[in-house]
Every structure is written in structure tokens, then in C-alpha cells.
Design a protein around this nucleic acid. Structure first.
Lengths: 194, 194
DNA sequence: TGCGAGGTAGACAGAGTGGTCTACTTTTTT
DNA sequence: AAAAAAGTAGACCACTCTGTCTACCTCGCA
């Protein structure tokens, strides 16, 4: 069956996300999961193939989460509000589907690899585009600048929450800023009218 | 003399920034710089000490650059405008002091290490706080939310420009958005009045 | 002329890496 | 009950990693 395969991907994702991909060796994944090395190489051609499977799984999980977060928003303001309060909940460990927060797995991963044409980096780019499109689909207005601005602040919030650490004010301050700001200032005033 | 030491730090910083710290071994730094291994370990106790020296040098360079960028701004709006147009120039390779753009060295580094109490991660946090204070010093208003918002968008812009790659619209769109937005909407309206 | 500081070259140790392979056991299917 | 499929344990290979060590060289200075 593919139970073992799934166990490998789950374990790999957990360890990669927590520690970074280059810091985690195949043997550690095998020790933690309890799976034999032979089995791993029956399912995956190489470590890179396992990394790609972990990225894919994380993307699926994140996309599904984001979809449910944004579903039901009645206005663009509500989209922004829902998004940033969900992000804040994630930063504080309140989104069990996403696990303990340690930044964006794809940003982290792209910091570890330099070959821009590698499958791994291409997948990271793909994730960001796909995420952007999910948000776009939930917005009423087709304003590209609004979409850009939302994505920009989303990335900034994730990175800041990660790098600022737990005992830093920026974390709560910034995300509460996001939630506070939106309902007061209309998005059209806030962004477009070039 | 410390010529060799400086050469080692320069080489290490270049390679670390371009490829990630865990992807670059001591031997590669030695090959590229042409320095002997014995000499490296005469100046640095370990690879970690060399990493810290590279982080320190990058921080000094970046802080000096940011200082000159923000100097002379007459208003908070101008601070924001100067900051984001300088960032955009950096993304496009136009800031020779900072070298070729490959994201934020400190964000990238913090993705590779997981021990929050390590000297390396502590230095990355320190860099972000110091950067924040440089910006704060150049702002007229003491509005913490404005400062948070600027830092948030700054991180978002850096990360997006890095991850989106060269052929992605988000890069220019987002940064030009930053520059376009600011002079039209006053910052006080844009941020505070809780 | 000699000495010492600073540097070079590179062998080496010990641990760890991704990946292959043989031999064996367990589980599932027919 | 027998055969086929799936998995285990771990030795092993070739390589890389950080860090140590010996032996030698090349200057400036006295």
C-alpha cells in the first residue's frame, strides 16, 4: 500500500519544515518514521523527489486551508479581514491543519537552493502564483494593484512573524495592524485610482 | 595582517548569500579566495564564527546603505518614497554596494537554522530590530503602527521580489505600487486614527 | 645573517551524506 | 496452503563535511 509512502512524506515535511531541508538527512527521516531505507527508494527516486512530494503536500494543505478561510466573504474588505486574522491565528499556533508556525515553507526552501531552474525552486514559484490566484478568485474587484498589495502584506506578515520571534512586539503589532486597518479604510481609496 | 581575514569574510559573504550557508563548505571558500585552511582557522574558531563575521559585515553594509538612502527626507511620506524606490533599485541590480539581489541575507539565513537561541539566529533578529530603528529615527511621527506598516511592506517587497523571480509581474507591479501609493495618500489617513 | 611572524599545501581523522544491495520476514492475494 | 508482493535490517560504497596537524616557504627586521 501507500501507507508507508504517506508516512514518509508526512515525516519528511515535518522535519524539513522545522529544520530546513539541507539540515535533514535521509537517515533521520528513516529513523523518525521507522521506515526502511529500501522502502523509501522504492517510492522515491532520490531525496529531491521526496522533497518535491513534501512541497506538493504542503501546497495542497495550504491551498485547502486558504480556500476555507476566504469562503463566504461578502466583500473585498471582508476577504482582507478574514485573510489577516487567519494569518494571525496561524502565527499563534491556532491553525492545527498548518501545524506549528515556522514561516512559509516555500520561502524557507527557496532560501536554500540557488539554481533557479531546478524543479524545487520552480515549485516554490508555482505555489506563490497559485496562492495569488486563490486570493484573486475571492476578490470582487479585478484590481491588480489591490491583489499585489494584499500579497505583499501577506508575505511581509509571514516573514516578520517568523523572524521577529515569539517575544517581539512586531509580531502582534503588525498583524493586529492588518486586522484593524482594513475595516476602517475602504480598499478602493486605499489602493487604486492611479 | 588582516588582509586575508577580510578576503575570507568577503568571499564567504558572497558565496553564502548567493548559495545559502549550508550549501557552501569551508573548502569552497578556501578555493575561491585562495587562502589556506590553516590561515582560516587562525582567524576564525569555526565555520560558525566565519558565518557570524559575514552576517556582521552584511549588516554594516546594509545599515550604511539604508542610512544614506533615508538621509535628507523632509517628511514621513518622503521617507517611505525614498525607501521603496531604493528597494526597487536594489531588486533590479542598481545598488552596487549591496551586490546582486538574492533576497534578504538574514531572512534566508534564518530559514536554514532552527535553534532559536543560536548566535546566528539571534544576530538575524538583531539585524531586523536595528533596521527598524534606523527607519524609526528618520520618521517624524512616533506612530508605531506606521513604523510597523513600513517594515511589513518592506519585508513583503523583498521576499516577493526574490521568490517571484525575474520574469514575474508581481515584482515590478508591487514595488511600483509602493512608490505610486505613497505620495497620493497621506500616511496619517493611511494608517493611524484607531 | 638569522629569526620569527604569517602564510601555504595538503594529508588526515572522524563523522555524516545519498544511494545501492543482499538476505530475510511479514503481509496480502489467489 | 502457496505464491507474490511489500517491507525490514543494515552492511557497504564513494563522496563530502569540518577541523587538526606536519612540514615547508617567504618575507621584514635587527
Amino acid at each position: 500500500m501507500s501507507q508507508k509512502r504517506q508516512l514518509l512524506v508526512d515525516t519528511a515535511l515535518t522535519l524539513f519544515y522545522r529544520n530546513g531541508i539541507n539540515s535533514i538527512g535521509i537517515n533521520e527521516i528513516l529513523n523518525v518514521s521507522g521506515v526502511a531505507k529500501r522502502t523509501l527508494y522504492a517510492y522515491f527516486q532520490s531525496k529531491e523527489a521526496l522533497v518535491l512530494a513534501a512541497l506538493q503536500q504542503r501546497h495542497d494543505t495550504f491551498a485547502a486551508w486558504l480556500e476555507t478561510v476566504l469562503t463566504g466573504a461578502k466583500s473585498d474588505e471582508e476577504v482582507v479581514l478574514k485573510l489577516f486574522s487567519a494569518l494571525e491565528s496561524w502565527f499563534n499556533g491556532g491553525e492545527s491543519q498548518l501545524g506549528d508556525f515556522r514561516g512559509c515553507f516555500f520561502i524557507n526552501t527557496s532560501a536554500e537552493f540557488s539554481d533557479v531552474n531546478s524543479d524545487i525552486l520552480r515549485f516554490c514559484h508555482h505555489h506563490k502564483e497559485a496562492t495569488r490566484e486563490i486570493i484573486a478568485r475571492h476578490l470582487k474587484s479585478a484590481d491588480g494593484l489591490l491583489l499585489d498589495a494584499i500579497c505583499l502584506m501577506k508575505e511581509g506578515a509571514i516573514v516578520s512573524a517568523h523572524l521577529a520571534g515569539k517575544n517581539n512586539l512586531l509580531r502582534k503589532g503588525a498583524s493586529t495592524y492588518c486586522t484593524l486597518l482594513q475595516p476602517k479604510v475602504p480598499s478602493k481609496r486605499w489602493v487604486s485610482n492611479t
